[in-house]
Structure formats: structure tokens, C-alpha cells
Design a protein around this nucleic acid. Structure first.
Length: 314
DNA sequence: TAGACGTGGCG
DNA sequence: TCGCCAAGTCT
């Protein structure tokens, strides 16, 4: 596809998608003109985690720790408990480290450039671009899973983007980005929203799509994906045990002795789904798995060990 | 660069 | 019911 056709297509599609966004955008708390800190917190929480689960935690978080300084002063255990069941708790620790860095190196203010944001713990290319755009109005190329999927269908004509982000995808996203900064911010948000609400991975709502008649995937007859997405194993994995251990530690008011850990973790796992149980019912004969999980949590700084047992970090 | 890393809702 | 999938990052 040549540059001219992309640019021409971009102009038409731009109007329709941004107009749709203006009318249909979800009313999310971090879209109501919150601080850059609020945007950063939302972006970290939203990594691999649905909006509906993030929203209540974000609300409590911002009330409790309205600035990076407030948050940096909190004990790690409080941070991990407040994170609750959002998942991937290492994100909470990295955000904590990022807040400390913001205090030390940026005078307590979230930095406003892409490279400075990218240097913060837990902030990768997506989050750095998103914060630069949505918190500071900068023209940056934002590429997340939603945007990748919309581009794959609308422009390329494929059901799904490649398994991993390619340079070509980033180049396409940059090519489609409006020159004007304000328009680019709106465009990034609008395409992301379209992917999240209409152009979804499974059963997309094409009948509600504002650019259905411009979609290359529709024009091609909605071809099937060209590869099978890898599954994400869970039941019976170390990850499940880590999750169960973390749930026990968050609930504990005092250190949990190693000898008692299995009973606590088993009770936690017992509360989970039947398939998980099936894989794990004999896990107590596999103490090495629990040992691996504990060792991993220790080395990740998510847990600490003292004479009386395991506990959340101070 | 492929694999590890939580969790819960939905089709 | 069970596998897919969600605003990724790090090693």
C-alpha cells in the first residue's frame, strides 16, 4: 500500500472514527481531566487488565495517594494490598519504584517526554507513548493491542495482527497519525476505543462500526486468522500457586510460617474453579512447586521471609 | 525473542 | 463447561 493511499484513507477514516468517539466514548474517570499521575496510574493498571476491574481500584488509589509523593511514602505492603486482585502484582511494585524515581529525578512531577517516561520502571513503549499523549497532549505513536487489531482489519484486511508487534505496524500507525498534536491525541484515543468496544477480538460488532464500508477485512470477506493464538496456561502452573500465595499473604495480618503455608494456599486454591482443582488436587505431593513459587516471589520482592514466616514486603 | 507473569468474565 | 482474552513489560 502506497503512502498516498494511506494518507487519503486516513483523512476519511479519521473524521468518521473521531466523530464516533465524540459521541460514543465511555465516561471513564481518567478521561475527566485528571492529573498526569492519575493517567500514569490508570495506564499501569490497565496493562492486561479490563477497564471494569481497574476503575474501582483506581478511584480508591487516587483518593488515597493523589500525588507521586503520597504514594512513594506508602509501605510496600499497603501498596500490594491496595492493588488487590488486579493481577500481575509486580506492576504495583514497579509503580512504587517509579514514584520514588519521580521524586528523586523529576522533583515529584510525572515527566512529560517519551524518553523520560520510558526510563521509569514498569513503563514500556506503549505506556510511555500513552502518557505523553493523554496526559501531556503530545503527538506520539500509540500502539496497543486494540490499535493493532483495528489497523490489521481496517487497513491490512487481516482478522488479527501478528503475534508480536512488528516495525511495519509501528510505521503504519505513525503514517496514520494526524500531524496536528491535538488531533493526534484524539485519534489515538478514538482508535483504541473502537478496538476496545466495537472491533473486538471475538465477535466484533461490525454492524455498529462507523467505518464498516471502509474496512479491508470486510471487503476481503472476513478471512480467518492466519495463525492460532497461543493459549495462556494457568491451571496447575507455578503462576497459579504464586497467585494463591499472594492472596494468602495479602489476607494475613502476621507472618505465615512455611509449615502452614500449604494448608493456607490449598484453601485459597480450593476457592478457585473446578478445572484448577483437578490439576492441583495432588499438588501437596509436589512441594517443589510451592518452593519455586515462594522463591520467585522472594526474588521479585513481592514477599519477604523472617524468623516467623513469609509476609508482604515492608 | 520466546516465555513468564494474575485474574476473572464472557461466548 | 472451558478456553480465550484484557490499554504490556521485562528478561
Amino acid at each position: 500500500m502506497g503512502e498516498a493511499s494511506c494518507a487519503a484513507k486516513g483523512d476519511v477514516v479519521h473524521q468518521e472514527i473521531t466523530r464516533w468517539f465524540g459521541q460514543q466514548a465511555r465516561d471513564l474517570p481518567w478521561r475527566r481531566g485528571c492529573s498526569a499521575w492519575g493517567i500514569l496510574v490508570s495506564e499501569i493498571m490497565l496493562q492486561q487488565t479490563p477497564v471494569v476491574r481497574v476503575q474501582p481500584v483506581w478511584e480508591e488509589w487516587m483518593e488515597r495517594w493523589p500525588t507521586p509523593a503520597d504514594f512513594a511514602a506508602a509501605p510496600a505492603a499497603d501498596v500490594l494490598r491496595a492493588w488487590g486482585r488486579l493481577g500481575y502484582p509486580r506492576r504495583a511494585l514497579r509503580l512504587h519504584a517509579a514514584a520514588a524515581r519521580i521524586l528523586e529525578e523529576h522533583d515529584g512531577a510525572v515527566p512529560d517526554t517519551y524518553p523520560e517516561l520510558l526510563a521509569l520502571p514498569g513503563v514500556g513503549t506503549y505506556t510511555a507513548a500513552a502518557v505523553a499523549a493523554f496526559a501531556f497532549g503530545r503527538r506520539t505513536t500509540v500502539v496497543d493491542t486494540n490499535i493493532r487489531r483495528v489497523h490489521a482489519r481496517l487497513v491490512i484486511g487481516q482478522a488479527l495482527p501478528a503475534p508480536a508487534l512488528t516495525a511495519a505496524e509501528t510505521a503504519l500507525a505513525t503514517d496514520l497519525l494526524p500531524e496536528d498534536a491535538d488531533e493526534s491525541v484524539l485519534w489515538n484515543a478514538a482508535v483504541m476505543e473502537l478496538g476496545a468496544v466495537i472491533c473486538t477480538a471475538r465477535s466484533p460488532k461490525c454492524d455498529l462500526c462507523p467505518v464498516l464500508d471502509k474496512c479491508a477485512w470486510i471487503a476481503a470477506g472476513q478471512p480467518e486468522p492466519t495463525y492460532i493464538p497461543k493459549g495462556q496456561p494457568w491451571a496447575g502452573t507455578d503462576r497459579q500457586v504464586r497467585g494463591a500465595v499472594m492472596a494468602v499473604l495479602r489476607a494475613a495480618s502476621s507472618p505465615v510460617h512455611a509449615d502452614l503455608f500449604w494448608d493456607s494456599v490449598a484453601a485459597q486454591v480450593h476457592a478457585e474453579t473446578a478445572p484448577a482443582l483437578r490439576k492441583l488436587h495432588d499438588l501437596n505431593t509436589h512441594a517443589p512447586q510451592l518452593e519455586r513459587a515462594l522463591a520467585g516471589l522472594l526474588s521479585d520482592g513481592l514477599a519477604q521471609l523472617s524468623e516467623t514466616g513469609y509476609h508482604l514486603p515492608h
